[in-house]
């Protein structure tokens, strides 16, 4: 494995509720190496977003800690760029101004900001839309800008929380290929959350499968396709084999979620 950038050490999260505390995440440890794309798949509600928000410094863990380059992180910071599932572009800023937002916050000069915006808007193929407002863009375009905006801060690691989850299947495929292209140039280390198995297998160097809530890492799968991946990979037998492996691990967890919901529903009504 390459040198580690990010280490999660025994991260857990409990939320206080009326009927005692709710454990959302059981102690979780993992390491992400330089230039790796590591993804986490799990059934909905298993604590994936919670985990990523802790790494992003937006949620404080109940126990454990996050180390970036060996230093503990305690709050959000520009060195951990984040892309959310919801559209989070600032609607009052143009595409170009959105991408310049991070550099502007740290006080970068105008010339530098313009150059960063040009570079990353080129990378996501939206140079022609630089003066549009977000409301004029499609969902896929908005997420492209969100990626460019996060990258313009030159983060040590990119944290992506189901970034393509709200897009239609066609657009999602295009975005996955775009992400691979960007990564082959920028080599940005990425921690990627998804519930889409194909997406995880196509993009990742390693995949962690989580259990249903309370979430815990259940298995780790290495994806040996290297960094040079073509769309044909999706239809290769090797792809299907890994896909099946992840599917088997996830399937029982999905069932567990449904069972738990039915049990909760019948105990609430009974």
């Amino acid at each position: 494995m390459p040198d580690p950038i990010l280490c999660l050490e025994g991260l857990s999260k409990e939320y206080p509720t009326k009927s005692g505390s709710l454990t959302v995440l059981e102690p979780t440890s993992l390491t992400v190496g330089v230039s790796e794309l590591v993804s986490i798949v799990g059934p909905s509600g298993c604590g994936k977003s919670t985990l990523l928000h802790i790494v992003g410094g937006l949620t404080t863990p109940t126990s454990g800690r996050v180390l970036l380059d060996g230093h503990e992180v305690t709050g959000p910071g520009a060195e951990r760029g984040m892309v959310f599932q919801a559209y989070t572009l600032f609607p009052w800023l143009t595409v170009r101004q959105n991408v310049q937002f991070g550099p502007k916050q740290r006080g970068a000069k105008k010339a530098e900001r313009e150059q960063l915006a040009d570079h990353f808007l080129d990378a996501v193929g939206l140079h022609g839309f630089r003066d549009h407002f977000p409301k004029q863009l499609s969902g896929g375009m908005r997420q492209r800008v969100a990626i460019a905006r996060a990258l313009a801060n030159s983060p040590r690691i990119l944290l992506m929380d189901e970034p393509f989850g709200a897009l239609d299947a066609q657009t999602r495929t295009v975005m996955q290929e775009l992400l691979l292209t960007i990564r082959s140039k920028e080599r940005t280390t990425t921690l990627f959350i998804t519930h889409d198995i194909d997406e995880a297998v196509f993009l990742s160097d390693r995949i962690f499968v989580m259990t249903a809530r309370p979430g815990r890492l259940k298995a780790e799968i290495c994806v040996p396709f290297g960094s040079d991946r073509s769309p044909d990979l999706r239809t290769s037998p090797e792809f299907f084999q890994i896909r099946a492996e992840v599917y088997d691990l996830l399937h029982s967890e999905g069932q567990a979620v449904v069972d738990a919901e039915i049990a909760a529903g019948s105990s609430a009504s009974g």
Binding site: L58, G77, F90, G102, Q105, A146
Partner: peptide, 21 residues
């Protein structure tokens, strides 16, 4: 939306910058 504020914080805004920007 909370995510809009969160996005700003992960882009390096401090609390005052989140409020005003």
């Amino acid at each position: 939306p909370k995510d809009l504020l969160n996005a700003a914080r992960t882009l390096g805004s401090n609390r005052l910058q989140v409020l005003f920007n």
